[in-house]
Design a protein around this nucleic acid. Structure first.
Lengths: 259, 259
DNA sequence: TATCATTTGTTCGTATGTATC
DNA sequence: CGATACATACGAACAAATGAT
């Protein structure tokens, strides 16, 4: 046994020892970490202590434990998917987005009516409890198997201007952008991104392993006057997807962001 | 006691019961959840079972446990900070970034020399083990107290073109952008975003509570020919910060992203 | 300041269930 | 079927943080 000493609780010392062994390459990615029984012997501690250490490494995302098999070092490779947040307008006036034609739909889009929440109301610059059309999709990237939850929220005021929208809230976004442009809108978009741990139902739907956060994107489509027309949300596991976008320098004189 | 039954393990039933009580508003945000002893009595289970249930809710980010005090329902409010990923060029040729003048530096910038890793090499389009200038900063937003780790990586080839860079690797980014522009470069930027659970040292440095992911941004500055000149990385807790950026439609004919 | 009750943290022990091979 | 490995559940004791007395 390695006779650990240093900091804090026993299980943390064990966790630190295993963590260092992993980062030092003693246990390479995808390899099996010693079993609980072996760790008990190696460090001369009880089973609860070993399990506590394992739990700590799990919550760090360093290992992945499979019932009946053992603990595997998680391979921290590049994400399989890069979500390019880019929009291209073709010469014919239609819109194309990278990834827009890559996703499969795992099930039929579910269209419904709902109301703004505090979050969605803020993004759409509406009050709470305003009426909306909604459409949810479960998307799957056929190449990597990555899953994503997509939601489109259309305020009544936007839908009124485009009759097709109210009739077919499940229309694809590129097509909606085209309809809005035909309606005379000059579109711009803004996105906000957050990350958080998934709720249990999101973990199930997205098939997320332990300790994998959810990337939560919200895209707002703005019309000519800058007012929000549509809100899209995309949620996907942060283990296999990364975001990418481009920035160009504004040429307006600098505005101060400070209050 | 509430005599739970439904799904799977006992501790998961207890966790589900508490979760539902929280989401139903029985325990409002920032309020104290019943103590372990009370939960043992309420559900008629042992302390290890209660602790297991509590641990599950912790890892979901739903509650926050403080030694000697109890478990608090985490308030899921808006992030205190929005990182606007925008760059403005003034008429005098200098650059201004929202937030660029907001951060405090918690300590002296640490400049050093290092080499590309697989990750940084990929972003800079360099091989592995290429020499770099580096500069690390610990930033604090004085308004919210939010911490962020910032890193600037400058390849030797870029530094050679601008003597000031090699002498003063700790120069602020807005100033570096200005120097590169004076050198005749027409700058563009691209960013990639990932989220993951923090390593122990990141948790300490960023003062992150349980179950809070890290947002990991990488910004690459491109020169006139599109080649990468500089890499910046920013890491911050996803509990108090969100990202925001804008998208405008390209006008080039659509490129297919599919392989 | 010191003590105490409350509450969570850590560690041991033990037994049994379930998944994998 | 058996061996191995992780999952669940109970019990018990002491340590450490917190807040009130």
């Amino acid at each position: 046994m390695s006779e650990i000493q240093r900091p804090g609780a026993l299980y943390q010392q064990v966790a630190a020892a295993i963590r260092e062994a992993i980062l030092a390459g003693e246990f390479p990615p995808d390899s099996l970490v010693p079993s609980e029984a072996q760790l008990m012997a190696r460090y001369g501690v009880s089973r609860p202590t070993v399990r506590n250490a394992i739990a700590a490494l799990r919550s760090e995302g360093l290992i992945d434990v499979r019932h009946g098999k053992g603990s595997f070092v998680r391979s921290s490779g590049q994400p399989a998917l890069t979500l390019e947040r880019r929009i291209t307008r073709t010469t014919e006036g239609t819109f194309v987005m990278p990834g827009g034609d890559v996703w499969d739909e795992a099930e039929e889009p579910a269209a419904y009516r709902t109301r703004t929440t505090k979050d969605t109301g803020r993004l759409l610059q509406l009050g709470a409890e305003e009426a909306l059309f909604g459409c949810d999709r479960l998307l799957i990237d056929p190449g990597s198997g990555t899953r994503a939850m997509h939601r489109t929220l259309i305020p009544f005021t936007t839908a009124e201007a485009i009759p097709t929208l109210a009739e077919e809230p499940s229309t694809h976004l590129a097509a909606i952008y085209g309809l809005l442009t035909q309606d005379g809108q000059k579109l711009t978009w803004s996105e906000t991104v957050r990350a958080r741990m998934p709720l249990p139902d999101e973990r199930t739907t997205l098939r997320l392993p332990d300790a994998i956060p959810v990337l939560h994107l919200a895209r707002v489509t703005h019309g000519t006057d800058g007012r929000p027309l549509i809100l899209e949300e995309l949620r996907t596991g942060a283990d296999r997807a990364e975001l990418a976008y481009r920035i160009t320098a504004d040429k307006q004189p600098a505005r101060r962001a400070r209050a």
